[in-house]
Amino acid sequence: MYYPVNFNLIYILLEIITAFIFGGLLLGLHRKVMARIQGRPGPPIVQHLLHTFKFYIKELSIPNTSSMPLYVAIVLAMDAVWILALIVGPILGGSFLIIIMCYAVHKVAEHGIGLASGSPYTKLGSTRAVLSATAEMPLIAVPALVFFKTDTLLLDGIINYQIVNGSLFTQLPLVALAMFVLVLSKTPYSPFGIVWGKDIVSGYKTEHFGVIRGVMMMGEILAFFALLWCFITIFFGGIITAPLAYMVAMTGITVILAFICALTPMVAPYHAVMIQWIFAILAVVNVLLI
């Protein structure tokens, strides 16, 4: 792999902005499809983006009880980490482990966001974030299984392997399923989205309004985009190479996710953990069979 010594900042910045806008549109589409399945007209597709922008001009209120620098910094950390993932992934084609790290830090940030406000609802959400990390840990075994197959974890290397040997989706279908569940658990209204369940008001986001909520939503959009990108690159890297193909594939996966989210109820926390463990074990079985 070759790291260019000089790289244009504008190029990377444009990529991040594109990811933000396209990710926002995808989440809007997600809501629209869900609404249509449930027989409602639903909001327009740009709604999620508008929602994000709207929060930028709403008043910011920081609770009196919050633990102060942390309350703001942890939300910014969530953004920063996914910006890093977007640079490492699509632009540099670097190590997949760094993206896994970003995912882990996202979990930490969810936990911290919930804790920092001092509200019991957010506390409950953050407790669930820790609990759901139990479920997603085995799913992060995906990189290990991919490594045993391809002997590399650099995204460039994985793409090259797939160009030579055909896409990994056909070779490791159950591992792909495990990764798909990982993406699903990060989608809003998903059956595994126990962290922001409506039964605990809004989970860890309950106390966040105004600018800080806007920044947080930006981070979530980037996270959704980056995870979709990783899923497509790791399992369909041989087939999908052009940006347009990526966009089509992302839209397709978003529609599938919307169908799943619309048709399944949110499962109880312990069941969410259990179901994701089952998928992880299936992934391991897949590797053992081959």
Binding site: S67, S117, P120
Partner: peptide
């Protein structure tokens, strides 16, 4: 950041 933060209040 964690070291410079104050602990939160719990109502």
């Amino acid at each position: 950041f964690l070291a410079i933060s104050n602990p939160e209040y719990r109502s």
